[in-house]
Amino acid sequence: MKILSLVAMITAGIWLNGLYDNGDGKKTALLPIHEPPSEAYNMNEAKKRGDIIWGYEYYNIERFHEFLANTNAKMKDKIRITSYTMEGDPIFKDLVFDGKKYHYTFDNSHDAYAGQDKGIYKDICSEILMEEPAEPAFILNGCSKQVDTTELF
Rank of each mutant, 00 (worst) to 15 (best):
K93M: 14
K74L: 12
T82M: 04
E131Y: 10
I124R: 04
M86D: 15
E39I: 09
I79R: 01
G50N: 02
D89N: 14
T105P: 01
Y56F: 15
G13C: 05
K118Y: 11
L6P: 00
W54T: 13
K78G: 06
D94V: 08
E131N: 08
Y102M: 12
M86R: 14
T150N: 10
V7Y: 14
D77N: 14
P36A: 13
Y20T: 09
Y58D: 11
L30M: 14
M86G: 10
H34Y: 08
I10H: 04
A8Q: 11
G23V: 06
H65T: 07
K76M: 11
N141G: 05
K2A: 10
E135C: 04
E151G: 01
K27T: 08
E57F: 13
I14S: 08
D24W: 01
F106R: 03
I124L: 01
K145C: 00
I53C: 05
A29L: 15
K76W: 02
N141K: 11
W15N: 13
A112T: 14
A112Y: 12
N44E: 15
L6V: 03
A40T: 08
N42W: 07
L19F: 15
M75G: 01
D24Y: 05
Y41N: 07
W15G: 06
I61R: 05
H65C: 01
E151M: 05
I139Q: 00
L68K: 04
K48N: 08
S109E: 12
D123I: 07
P36D: 13
Y121T: 12
P37N: 09
K47R: 13
I53K: 02
L30T: 09
D123A: 13
D89S: 11
L152T: 03
D21P: 00
D51F: 01
F138N: 00
N60T: 01
I61G: 02
E87F: 11
S144E: 14
K78H: 09
T105E: 14
D51I: 00
Y104S: 02
P32K: 12
P32D: 14
D77A: 15
K26H: 10
D21V: 06
N17M: 07
L152K: 02
D111F: 13
T71W: 01
Y102T: 05
C125V: 06
R49N: 15
S38Y: 10
K26W: 06
P32S: 15
A29Y: 12
T149Y: 13
Q116I: 14
F67L: 07
I53D: 05
I81A: 05
D77R: 04
S126H: 02
I52N: 00
G55C: 09
Q116C: 07
P133K: 06
L4F: 09
H65V: 07
P90T: 13
N141L: 01
M86Y: 13
I139Y: 06
A69K: 11
F138Y: 15
G142F: 04
G50L: 02
D98Y: 03
D24M: 04
L16E: 14
S109Q: 10
K145G: 02
S109G: 10
M75F: 03
Y102H: 11
K93S: 15
E131L: 08
R49Y: 06
C125N: 03
